[in-house]
Design a binder for these strands. Structure first.
Lengths: 213, 213
DNA sequence: CTTACAATAACACGTTAGTGGTATGGTGCC
DNA sequence: GGCACCATACCACTAACGTGTTATTGTAAG
C-alpha cells in the first residue's frame, strides 16, 4: 500500500545472525535496511541522527542491553517503533521490554516472511508478537483478577473487602461503601490476612496482583 | 498439522453475521462448527456438555453479555479457548475480556482467512489479536513504568524510594536498604507525595502503576 | 438440635504512616 | 560569594492500620 519502503535499523551482536537478517531484509523491496549495529552504545550514539521507521533490537547486547536502549531511545523519537528480536521467552524480559517502549516482540526462529509481515504490521500500528509471547502477555491479565481473589478460599464478603483494600480505600471508606461498621471491616481484614498469611495491606495486594515489574 | 478439525462453538446474536460466519467456517475442512448460539444464557446452559476446542464469542449479547459468559464458562473447562469477536475496540472491553479468560480478541471486519488463521493459532497456544487491539494491550504496559516513575520530575533518589514504597516496604526497611535514617526516608516520601500531588502510599502507587482493572 | 462458620460489632493497645516545621552539608551555576 | 536544589537528619503531633479478645446473630451441615 505504502510505496515508500520501511526504513529499518538492526541492532544485533551476533555477526552470523546479523548478516542473515540483513540478507533477508535486503531481498524485500518493501523494506530498506538503513544501518546495522553490533552494540547498544553505538546504536544510542547514532540514533538521534538516524532516519528510520522501525528498529529491530536484540536484548542480549554487549555494553548496554536492548531493553535499556529502548528505554532511552524511545522517548527521543516516539514515532519510531521498536521490535524486540530475541531467543528469550522469559516473561520478565517481555514485560520489561514492553514497559520500556517496545511495540513488538518476536522470537528469533520466525520465518523471514513472518518477520517481514511483522515489520509492516508494526509500521501500520499493530503490535506483532510471536504466539507464545502473546499468550504470556494475555496471561498477565488473567492472573490479575482471576487466580487471586477468586482463589485462596476467601468468602465472597472477604473478596469484596480485599478488592476495595487493594484499591487503596481506607477502612472507613470501605465501611461506608459496604454499609457496615469500620470495626467489621477490620475484622474481615484480619481474617483475610490470616487466610493469605500476610501481615499488611501491601503484602496482601502483592499476593493478589503479582504485577510488580 | 493436526488431522482433527478444530471444533468450534459460535455465540452471536446477529442472525446475518452468524450465518455469514457459519458459512465461512463450514467451508474450511480444518474447522468444524459444532453449534451456534444467539444468546449467552443458552450458551452457558449448553456449555457443560458441549465438546469444543474454541468458542467464538460476541460481546454484545441479549441476556448475559459475552464477557460474563467467558468469566463463568472458562473455569469449567480451562482447555477451551475463548476468542472474542466484536466491533468494539473500547479498551475497557478488551481488558475485561482478557481478565475474564479470553485468549484472543478479533474485530469483526477481519477477512475470513484471518479468522481461520486466528482459530488455528489460538488452538495452537497463541493469542491472536487484531493489530489495533494488540497495540492497546501493549500500550497498557507502557504507561506502567514509563510515564510514572521516569517522569514527574522526581530526583533519582526519590524514584528509588518510590519504587521501594510501591513494593510495600516499611519506612524502616527502605531506610535499612538505602542506608539512610528512617527520618530521611520520611522526608523523601513527603517530597514525593507533594510532587505527585497525592496523600498516601496507595495513591502514589496508583499513579505510578495505573493497572487496577 | 448441636456444631460450625460467616458476618456483624465493639474495646483496647501498640505500631506505622502522614504532616508540620527546622537544620546542616554538598554540588553546581552565575 | 550567593543562590538553588538535593540529600541527609531530627522533633512533635495526628490519623490510620494491625493485633488481641470477646460477643451476637443467622444459616447451613451433621
Amino acid at each position: 500500500m505504502d510505496p515508500r519502503p520501511v526504513r529499518i535499523a538492526l541492532v544485533e551482536d551476533d555477526k552470523e545472525l546479523r548478516e542473515l537478517l540483513r540478507a533477508g531484509i535486503e531481498r524485500a523491496d518493501t523494506l530498506r535496511l538503513v544501518r546495522t549495529f553490533a552494540d547498544g552504545e553505538d546504536f544510542l550514539a547514532a540514533f538521534p541522527s538516524l532516519d528510520v521507521d522501525v528498529v529491530l533490537m536484540d536484548i542480549n547486547l554487549p555494553g548496554k542491553n536492548g531493553i535499556d536502549c529502548i528505554r532511552e531511545a524511545k522517548p527521543m523519537k516516539d514515532n519510531v517503533q521498536f521490535m524486540v528480536l530475541t531467543v528469550f521467552e522469559n516473561p520478565a524480559y517481555i514485560f520489561q521490554a514492553l514497559s520500556a517502549g517496545a511495540t513488538g516482540y518476536l522470537v528469533k526462529n520466525e520465518e523471514p516472511e513472518a518477520l517481514h509481515a511483522a515489520i509492516h504490521e508494526i509500521r501500520a500500528g499493530g503490535s506483532p508478537m510471536s504466539s507464545a509471547i502473546a499468550r504470556m502477555v494475555v496471561a498477565s491479565f488473567q492472573t490479575e483478577v482471576q487466580t487471586k481473589i477468586h482463589d485462596h478460599k476467601l468468602t465472597e464478603r472477604e473478596k469484596g473487602i480485599l478488592d476495595q483494600l487493594a484499591t487503596g480505600l481506607m477502612y472507613k471508606e470501605i465501611a461506608a461503601k459496604s454499609e457496615i461498621s469500620t470495626e467489621t471491616v477490620r475484622k474481615h481484614v484480619r481474617n483475610i490476612y490470616e487466610k493469605l498469611q500476610v501481615g499488611s495491606r501491601m503484602e496482601a495486594i502483592r499476593l493478589v496482583y503479582p504485577k510488580g515489574l
